[in-house]
Design a protein around this nucleic acid. Structure first.
Lengths: 338, 338
DNA sequence: ATGAAAGCGCTAACAG
DNA sequence: CTGTTAGCGCTTTCAT
């Protein structure tokens, strides 16, 4: 059996159906295009033939002529985070509900982002959602000339030709600080990787607010958003003699890791000896083992906003770009004093 | 600005490039088809023109003629589970590495599975991975006539025309039982939903092994694989006067929920008063707050096996279906006595 | 090595 | 309502 035998194998097409049904090929096309004018009689003939041959229209061919694939590309970076799983789940479900489909693309490191985006464009996606990755100007150019709407999710644009929706990390950081100030003596922050803009915003908001209140010696360590890195960072912080009694983490996962070293390695009681706050409000934050106070990113609101803007740009050809900054909400549980 | 103005907008094609480069359209096609015979000189001309026009080939058109889209469809049910996030992540990354792309489809309930699969087929996916969903015979038929290779992931086939790779839940359940037998007096099991075959296998293995050892009064409750449902099920179990001192949960997430009610609602000590085991070995199982003993599904092995079979069927037209049952591994931590 | 031409499977005028 | 016809943007013989 040769390498190509599959490709050469017959795939039933509309002309086969037409022949069997005794109608023209356009009739079968009309039969599968809702709103097209076709008599009930031919419709039945076509349907019968189609069923017999197990036919269904080739969307690729349709896309070629309609110049619309009905597919939305979603780009994200290695998503270890439960936050992004949730986001992705909501996106795909809602995209499907809208009659579109999702081409999911994962980028390992920032070097590959251009390649990935470019193949998305080559697939003629009708729209693009980019999560936690930056957009090179070459790619902005590409999207522009191909007229492909793009929304940055949880990033903001350096270029104002592209829309963005993200949550207000700066304000979230400030809220976290407000919750802790006055109840603690020594503050620390566990940030994300150096380049990360979300990490920067959140920690900056926190630190600024502290400074506004006369606290200028906030410690910090960095993690990579994982549980383990949160543990490691907290470990460093807690091994100091001037150990902090309040730690703000720029992600919940890191906060959980921090809580666990604090409790199980240092035997600290939370929040008696140490308050911890996270950011995201992932499911685990509410688990009884943690009860993590956190700054909630309103996922549903963010997703809906992204999608409504995207479909607006796609369907109404609204080329008006927007930047929507969504407010966070404080979720107080028991990992902080009150 | 009309509704259609975007669609009518110009998208640069190979003929545009050809014209600018002063070569034939086929030349530009060849330029982008590796291995095609084209002189260095024309190649440069084409490349230059392409760059100028910001051109890149339309994969949809190419797919139409090549009868191959290079896209793999992945179907999964509302994936709340961290296990499936991990699986999905591995799949997409490895699919991309192979030069393919992922069309991600989510099915809410079993009613929609046919619709979803059928649109995947209409998109002419080169292959299909179906996770935790059953395949109707109509769909098997559809895949067969369209010659689309399908692999069932963590399901087994009722039909032997379709390949499957899954982990041996029955054996996993048995291993869990072996670990608990002799150290406990009263056993219970938290199963998944009634229809779920994975739940059935895992719990059956557990219960059978118990019976082989003369224990025939294993209690059980059902959950839906979520943390909350695990808590609820454990709550019922633990409120009995003949409370179990060993609980096997068919998923880690439920086991974590069970641990938390046991500890925080009933004040039980684990594993002193109660042993708990899970299934999957998700990341959280190793967190210090839990230290959950569990039956590990070897994700990487399963994913690799699935993919190698799938690509084998795609590229070598190997229509030899396989069913690969992968062995689980016991991971002992501190939630069980030893 | 290159261009001309045929066609992938479909939709969309256009006549009738 | 229906068939005919002309493409969508590309790959691929087939000559040259």
């Amino acid at each position: 059996m040769s390498n190509k035998s599959r490709k050469n194998n017959y795939r039933v097409s509309s002309v086969d159906v037409a022949r069997l049904a005794g109608v023209s090929q356009s009739a079968v096309s009309r039969c599968f295009t809702k709103g097209a004018s076709i008599s009930e009689k031919s419709k039945q003939k076509v349907l019968k033939a189609a069923r017999e041959l197990n036919y269904s229209p080739n969307i690729i061919a349709r896309s070629l002529v309609k110049k619309a694939t009905n597919i939305i590309g979603i780009v994200l970076t290695r998503y270890k985070s439960p936050f992004y799983s949730r986001v992705l789940g909501q996106f795909t479900r809602k995209i499907q509900a809208k009659g579109y489909n999702t081409l999911l693309m994962d980028i390992g490191n920032d070097e590959t982002v251009d390649a990935v985006l470019s193949t998305a464009l080559q697939y003629q996606v009708d729209g693009l959602i980019i999560t936690s990755a930056t957009l090179s100007s070459a790619m902005v150019e590409g999207c522009l000339t191909s007229q492909t709407p793009v929304i940055l999710f949880n990033r903001y644009a350096m270029y104002n030709e592209v829309s963005a929706v993200y949550c207000d990390g700066m304000d979230g950081g400030r809220k976290a600080a407000d919750q802790m100030i006055g109840r603690h003596n020594r503050f620390a922050c566990i940030k994300g990787e150096e380049g990360s803009s979300t990490s920067r915003d959140r920690s900056q908001g926190f630190i600024q607010r502290l400074e506004e209140n006369g606290i200028s010696d906030c410690l910090y360590e960095r993690g990579n958003y994982s549980y383990e890195s949160g543990s490691a960072a907290a470990d460093k912080l807690l091994s100091r003699k001037d150990r902090p009694d309040a730690i703000f983490c720029v992600s919940d996962l890191m906060a959980l890791g921090a809580m666990d070293v604090a409790r199980y390695k240092y035997g600290l009681e939370i929040p008696k000896d140490l308050s911890i706050m996270g950011f995201d409000n992932i499911n685990m934050a509410s688990w009884s083992a943690y009860n993590l106070s956190t700054v909630k990113q309103p996922v549903t609101k963010m997703v809906d906003s992204t999608l409504s803007q995207l479909f607006n740009e796609i369907e109404n050809n609204e080329d008006h770009t927007i930047v929507r900054k969504i407010k966070t909400e404080l979720v107080l549980r028991k990992s902080t004093r009150n």
